[in-house]
């Protein structure tokens, strides 16, 4: 296995080929915030809270740490004024949907995000896709999926599958960063299988 040397926040970090920046940082004990990432699931790159700055071959770029592959001599910065601005804005945009989510509140404190910046539109879902992907990739049941597109995108259970599979599983509930998934599931059950 080939070793790759890169620099994260001024520290030399060793990584293996094929690792992402996030994995390399985690292995070195450097914290990068994530919302849609889960180690058992394929990298997704949707929440963008893990945005970091990379410098390779003289060019600086902002990239998502959870999907960007490590390279030899890559220079990574996990905090900067701009990165913090991005994370703050992402949190504020999400807090409009899930103002009470603990995962968001903790990060909001760190980045000075104002949960009332945008008008509330409480859908409780931040579209991290953890439930959808866990159900598909780990459980292979596909009981919950995304529907629609753009700003109308939402998660939706398939009642026929959910009524068979979900009662004895519920493993996706604790993954939900807004703790609202359970409510969504119960609602689905109530509507479709009284």
């Amino acid at each position: 296995m080939s070793e790759i040397l890169l620099q994260i926040d001024g520290r030399e970090v060793e990584a293996r080929k094929g690792m992402t920046i996030l994995e390399a940082a985690q292995s070195a004990g450097i914290f990068i915030p994530t919302l849609c990432h889960h180690e058992k699931l394929e990298a997704y790159g949707a929440c963008r809270i893990c945005t970091v700055e990379v410098e390779a071959r003289g060019r600086k770029n902002l990239v998502a740490a959870c999907v960007y592959p490590v390279e030899q001599n890559l220079v990574v910065r996990t905090r900067s004024e701009k990165i913090d601005r991005i994370r703050k804005m992402i949190l504020e945009l999400l807090l409009a949907h899930a103002p009470d989510a603990f995962a968001l509140q903790d990060l909001a404190k760190e980045y000075g995000a104002d949960k009332d910046r945008f008008e509330k539109e409480a859908s409780f879902c931040i579209h991290c896709g953890l439930c959808v992907r866990y159900c598909a990739e780990v459980k292979k049941k596909n009981a919950v999926g995304f529907v629609d597109r753009g700003t109308r995108r939402e998660i939706s259970f398939i009642p026929e599958i959910a009524s068979k599979e979900c009662w004895n599983c519920k493993e996706c509930f604790p993954l939900c960063p807004t703790e609202a998934l359970q409510a969504a599931f119960v609602l689905t059950k109530a509507l479709f299988s009284p």
Binding site: A136, D148, I158, I161
Partner: peptide, 12 residues
């Protein structure tokens, strides 16, 4: 193909 994927495409 899982129904979830079909429904996503059908609504996309």
């Amino acid at each position: 193909v899982p129904l979830t994927r079909i429904r996503h495409i059908a609504t996309f």
